[in-house]
Design a binder for these strands. Sequence first.
DNA 1: GTATTATGGAGCATTCATGTTCCATAATGG
DNA 2: CCATTATGGAACATGAATGCTCCATAATAC
Lengths: 188, 188
Amino acid sequence: MGRPDRTRRSLLDAAVVVLSKDSSASLSEVATTAGVGRTTLHRYFPTRELLIRALVEDALDRVAEAISSAHPAEGPVVDALQRVTDTVVPLGPSLSFLHAEPEVYNARDLIRRWYEALEPVAQAIERGQADGSLRDDLPVKWVVDAYAGAILTAWDTADEGRIWLQDAPRLVMTTIVQGIATPPTDAP
Amino acid sequence: MGRPDRTRRSLLDAAVVVLSKDSSASLSEVATTAGVGRTTLHRYFPTRELLIRALVEDALDRVAEAISSAHPAEGPVVDALQRVTDTVVPLGPSLSFLHAEPEVYNARDLIRRWYEALEPVAQAIERGQADGSLRDDLPVKWVVDAYAGAILTAWDTADEGRIWLQDAPRLVMTTIVQGIATPPTDAP
DNA sequence: GTATTATGGAGCATTCATGTTCCATAATGG
DNA sequence: CCATTATGGAACATGAATGCTCCATAATAC
């Protein structure tokens, strides 16, 4: 990875951190956080809009790649979701950015691409409802959103220091899969 | 409610809608949405910061009031949470605003007040863990955040047209309380 | 109906992020 | 070591949002 590539990566990484906390932060802040001059930032991303666009692309790519690498179509569905959770939780800042950016919220095609990235998860959930491992009285769309939301919440909560990030995957899976109620005991 | 009060309410209502979608929207947009001149907006809220502050106060009051009116300390915990869910879901825009506003995210005292408003929920969850109706292997802080996050997700999902808002309370409760997995059957 | 209060439009100064250019310096590659 | 490329600082123009003032008009109260 040459110097240009490294600079570009620094900028994207800094931008995702800064802009996920405050989507209206100035480009100076982003450049400073990346340890780079504002001039250089503009050399890589001529306008703010292009930076945002590149960031969204990058975040979507990461999410899609993380999900795909967890092979959600293989093995028992709950195990598959566990693998997805483990790989996606560390993407917290990117998820947070995608969720916070009004550019994303208001652009149809970006919402579409977000759900395209989540499509393998949706398929895993459908598979689970079909094979009886997941309850089938919840809409798949809702389950996908609730699941993604739980991961995002976990990252935010860890970021605020209310839980440890290392516990996040377990908490997400227990809560989403089994719920917070005491499970009914198998009768004695 | 005199004219001034109505104008103030219009402004707060419009602001919460506009700013929850884009926290950097201009004050002109807010005024226009409220059906009010920008001059009038500035008469009620001299600076943007004061408007935001008033909005946060208002949103926190609404949440606290809604929770309190659901009497979360009474009756079976799961029933209590159902009542809280029913009353809080309609506050979607206010919740969404509190969650999106960087002012809130970065001000310690506002985060503190958010959790103060949720304190009755935290107590209900503690009560549930103590009386055996809720599993006790999840940190209360996490359960509170996961629950609040699920309500927020439900509102967002309904806003995007992926579920019906009228189904939201049921979906939240089923998902959070029982989880998405098929419950283990009581033995034959 | 009149007095009082609330409103909104027009205009203006200020501030700040943004985008751009130019040049000197530093890092990299041959 | 030299040529090339990348960087960053300074300076500038632009535009948009903000905060404010003044005045005419509309709504409300008495």
